[in-house]
Protein backbone atom coordinates (compact mmCIF):
# COMPACT_ATOMS: atom_id res chain seq x y z
CA UNK A 1 0.00 0.00 0.00
CA UNK A 2 2.65 2.50 1.01
CA UNK A 3 5.63 1.13 -0.91
CA UNK A 4 5.26 3.81 -3.54
CA UNK A 5 6.01 6.43 -0.92
CA UNK A 6 9.51 4.97 -0.44
CA UNK A 7 9.66 5.63 3.30
CA UNK A 8 13.00 6.02 5.01
CA UNK A 9 13.67 6.27 8.72
CA UNK A 10 14.95 9.89 8.88
CA UNK A 11 11.97 11.19 6.95
CA UNK A 12 9.58 9.19 9.11
CA UNK A 13 11.23 10.66 12.21
CA UNK A 14 10.95 14.13 10.70
CA UNK A 15 7.23 13.85 10.03
CA UNK A 16 6.59 12.25 13.44
CA UNK A 17 8.33 15.25 14.98
CA UNK A 18 6.10 17.63 13.01
CA UNK A 19 2.95 15.75 14.07
CA UNK A 20 4.16 15.68 17.68
CA UNK A 21 4.70 19.43 17.51
CA UNK A 22 1.18 20.01 16.17
CA UNK A 23 -0.32 17.82 18.90
CA UNK A 24 1.75 19.55 21.57
CA UNK A 25 0.72 22.98 20.26
CA UNK A 26 -2.94 21.95 20.34
CA UNK A 27 -2.72 20.67 23.91
CA UNK A 28 -0.82 23.80 24.97
CA UNK A 29 -3.46 25.96 23.29
CA UNK A 30 -6.24 24.17 25.19
CA UNK A 31 -4.37 24.47 28.50
CA UNK A 32 -3.45 28.13 28.11
CA UNK A 33 -4.76 30.01 25.07
CA UNK A 34 -2.18 32.09 23.20
CA UNK A 35 -2.19 35.87 23.10
CA UNK A 36 -1.50 37.90 19.98
CA UNK A 37 1.69 39.83 20.70
CA UNK A 38 4.40 41.84 19.05
CA UNK A 39 8.05 40.82 19.27
CA UNK A 40 10.98 41.52 16.99
CA UNK A 41 9.05 40.22 13.98
CA UNK A 42 7.33 42.91 11.91
CA UNK A 43 3.84 41.51 12.52
CA UNK A 44 1.88 40.62 15.64
CA UNK A 45 1.95 36.85 16.02
CA UNK A 46 0.39 34.02 17.97
CA UNK A 47 2.33 30.96 19.08
CA UNK A 48 1.20 29.01 16.04
CA UNK A 49 2.37 31.78 13.70
CA UNK A 50 5.75 31.88 15.40
CA UNK A 51 6.14 28.11 15.11
CA UNK A 52 5.42 28.35 11.39
CA UNK A 53 7.79 31.28 10.85
CA UNK A 54 10.45 29.51 12.91
CA UNK A 55 10.16 26.27 10.96
CA UNK A 56 10.24 28.12 7.66
CA UNK A 57 13.30 30.11 8.75
CA UNK A 58 14.95 26.89 9.90
CA UNK A 59 14.35 25.30 6.52
CA UNK A 60 15.90 28.29 4.75
CA UNK A 61 18.92 28.22 7.07
CA UNK A 62 19.57 24.56 6.31
CA UNK A 63 19.15 25.13 2.61
CA UNK A 64 21.53 28.06 2.59
CA UNK A 65 24.03 25.99 4.56
CA UNK A 66 23.84 23.17 2.03
CA UNK A 67 24.33 25.66 -0.76
CA UNK A 68 27.53 27.15 0.66
CA UNK A 69 28.96 24.15 2.54
CA UNK A 70 31.20 23.26 -0.38
CA UNK A 71 32.69 26.74 -0.43
CA UNK A 72 33.18 26.73 3.33
CA UNK A 73 35.95 24.20 2.85
CA UNK A 74 37.91 26.89 1.05
CA UNK A 75 36.91 29.75 3.32
CA UNK A 76 37.88 28.17 6.60
CA UNK A 77 40.50 25.72 5.36
CA UNK A 78 38.53 22.69 6.54
CA UNK A 79 39.50 19.06 5.93
CA UNK A 80 36.05 18.13 4.65
CA UNK A 81 32.62 19.67 4.19
CA UNK A 82 31.10 20.67 7.53
CA UNK A 83 28.38 18.38 8.82
CA UNK A 84 24.73 19.25 8.20
CA UNK A 85 24.18 18.82 11.93
CA UNK A 86 25.86 22.19 12.48
CA UNK A 87 23.18 24.04 10.56
CA UNK A 88 20.52 21.79 12.03
CA UNK A 89 21.38 22.87 15.56
CA UNK A 90 21.76 26.48 14.46
CA UNK A 91 18.32 26.39 12.89
CA UNK A 92 16.78 24.81 15.99
CA UNK A 93 18.32 27.59 18.05
CA UNK A 94 16.76 30.09 15.64
CA UNK A 95 13.41 28.36 16.00
CA UNK A 96 13.63 28.60 19.78
CA UNK A 97 14.58 32.27 19.55
CA UNK A 98 11.62 33.07 17.28
CA UNK A 99 9.25 31.12 19.54
CA UNK A 100 10.35 33.02 22.63
CA UNK A 101 11.09 36.54 21.41
CA UNK A 102 9.39 36.80 18.00
Amino acid sequence: MFEWMAWTLPVAVFFCAIVAMLVAMTVWELKSPTVLRRGFLPIATTRGDRLFIGLLAAAYVNLAFVAVSERMVGWFGLEEEPSIWLSFFASMALLALIMRKG
Partner: peptide, 15 residues
Protein backbone atom coordinates in the same frame (compact mmCIF):
# COMPACT_ATOMS: atom_id res chain seq x y z
CA UNK B 1 4.42 16.01 -0.02
CA UNK B 2 5.65 13.22 2.28
CA UNK B 3 6.55 11.20 -0.77
CA UNK B 4 8.50 14.07 -2.28
CA UNK B 5 10.49 14.38 0.95
CA UNK B 6 11.21 10.65 0.83
CA UNK B 7 12.37 10.79 -2.75
CA UNK B 8 14.56 13.79 -2.09
CA UNK B 9 16.87 11.92 0.28
CA UNK B 10 17.27 8.71 -1.71
CA UNK B 11 18.78 7.52 -4.93
CA UNK B 12 15.98 5.49 -6.47
CA UNK B 13 17.46 3.12 -8.98
CA UNK B 14 14.37 0.94 -9.19
CA UNK B 15 11.36 0.48 -6.90
Amino acid sequence: LMTVVNYSVQDIISP
